[in-house]
Amino acid sequence: MIPILFFFFAAVAIASGIMMIVHRNPIYCALFLILTLFAVAGLYVLLNAPFIAAVHIIVYAGAIMVLFLFVIMLLDLKSETSRQRPGGLPRILSIIMSGVLLAELVLFLRSGTANLPLVEGDLIIGSTKEIGNLLFTEYLFPFEITSVLLLSSIIGSVILARLKLK
């Protein structure tokens, strides 16, 4: 059962990821990204992290992608009719970098997949209660620092927007 679901979600994630890069209309790209996020959330659930999956959808697919879509809709970006492929140095660099990444991936997969621990059907670790406990006891300091970081970025963006208006 679980392998079937895993392959299904993985296939959806890969396919929509590729479609997102390949498609021409920006709105459809954003929608494919949302689909990818859903598939990844499904993978999180399979990994016994339902809280992460829920928060992933609430924050990423539910808020951030809506703002992405907003911007794309309001700017009314037309789909690219002609693709100008960048030639020369950037192209060579990108080929090299993606080659390195591919090699890394292949080496990693070949080496140790048999030794990785199998995920057991243990629901306690990823549950909301456990994560909440940990967040507010052991990892309290990073939690608070992250919230201060978010607050500073909110204030920064508000200031930037107001400067532009004035």
Binding site: I27, A54, I58, G62, V66, L69
Partner: peptide, 24 residues
């Protein structure tokens, strides 16, 4: 589900898409 209420938030958040996509 053991995430209960969070699921409701997730669904409420996704409900925006139907409106936004249809409108645009």
């Amino acid at each position: 589900l053991n995430i209960g209420v969070l699921y409701l938030f997730a669904v409420a958040g996704m409900a925006v898409y139907g409106v936004v996509l249809g409108a645009w």
